[in-house]
Write a protein that binds this DNA or RNA. Structure first.
Lengths: 190, 190
DNA sequence: CATAACATATATCATCAGTTATATAACTAA
DNA sequence: TTAGTTATATAACTGATGATATATGTTATG
């Protein structure tokens, strides 16, 4: 029987994950990962046929992290919008390299990944609780707008183009969602 | 006296510029640029001490293109907001690699570049013509919000995360600016 | 123990990128 | 025409990276 693996797939992915967190995918190469693990490059190519495979697996872990992050942030039923938006932006700030990898760079990984778009429907339903006045279609349109706004902040934060504090972000988003909703409903009435 | 230069700085920058337009800065390397020009790598290193220098010069040209694009889009006094926003988004769509290089990737080039932030003040002033009801500070806050929204759309467009037609973009932005303004003013009144 | 089967380290190759050394060609002043 | 200067082509060097061949362990099982 063979000797036990000293460096398992998971270990290697974790090392790559940490590198991406600091430097993005650019920093992930065989020797760099090996150094992180304190081993040679062999365990890496033994566990993964190619570096691209490791990249993909690492991406999956990163995407899972994103999903976990969002799940934790969106527990509440009240103010689901605000909570989700804040989570999204917080992710962009705490894990800028992850955010950039997922949302700001089109790569092969995205195409092959499992980014299910089902969240949108759920979000719209949640919002329905807050915005009874609007039809489903209107809610959807409104949802898109809020999402765009949130994404805008998150991108600015991830690239450190602007530096917002937690409080500033909360105020900005809260105000904007309120105003957008008010403006949207108002627009209908006028 | 020396023979005339067959390949001038400008030619080389132009070649690099075209490559960035198609593939981003990743595609710009000495041999690739040389191939584009139909020459060896020598003219490149003769005109530029390092590839980084060529990168920077190319970035400058790209940034100038952006400024020119925005200037053309923002001639009108009426609806300055909408025009500027549409220009910004259109730039992101027509030159996604340029947009990404300028606004979605923090690099050494940005830090050393000359991105003057004076436009902000001007924009706020322009907007004052449309929004007489608001104080300067309020206009500024509103301006930031519209800018964030616009940036959000542009980022989505540049990465091709969403594919909007010209009409869709115009409607979306027009509606949103109107609603945001209405909501903002409404929020003050309530 | 001995061995099969696998894991790891080391050294190495191939490729690609930036850069440079050398030779050649072109241009101008004398 | 020649000498000096310099632009260009060719080829090479250097360093980084993906990948692999080989040798050396390591361990469960008979």
């Amino acid at each position: 029987m063979p000797p036990a693996r000293k460096f398992k797939k998971e270990d290697i992915i974790n090392a790559a994950y940490e590198i991406v967190k600091e430097e993005g995918f650019v920093g992930v190469n065989a020797r760099r990962v090996a150094k992180e693990l304190g081993c040679s490059v062999q365990p890496i190519f033994h566990n993964f046929a190619t570096m691209e495979e490791l990249h993909k697996e690492t991406y999956k872990k990163i995407y899972a992290k994103y999903q976990e992050h969002m799940k934790n942030g969106a527990k509440e039923e009240k103010k689901a919008y605000l909570k989700m938006g804040l989570s999204y932006i917080k992710f962009a700030r705490n894990y800028p390299e992850f955010f950039k990898a997922i949302f700001m760079q089109k790569t092969k990984m995205d195409a092959e990944s499992f980014v299910t778009a089902d969240t949108e429907e759920n979000d719209v339903i949640k919002v329905g609780q807050t915005m009874c006045k609007l039809s489903y279609e209107e809610q959807k349109k409104f949802h898109v707008k809020v999402w765009i706004f949130t994404h805008g902040i998150a991108c600015l934060v991830a690239t450190k183009t602007v530096v917002f504090s937690d409080e500033e972000i909360e105020v900005l988003l809260k105000e904007s969602v309120r105003e957008m909703l008010k403006g949207y409903v108002g627009g209908k009435e006028n």
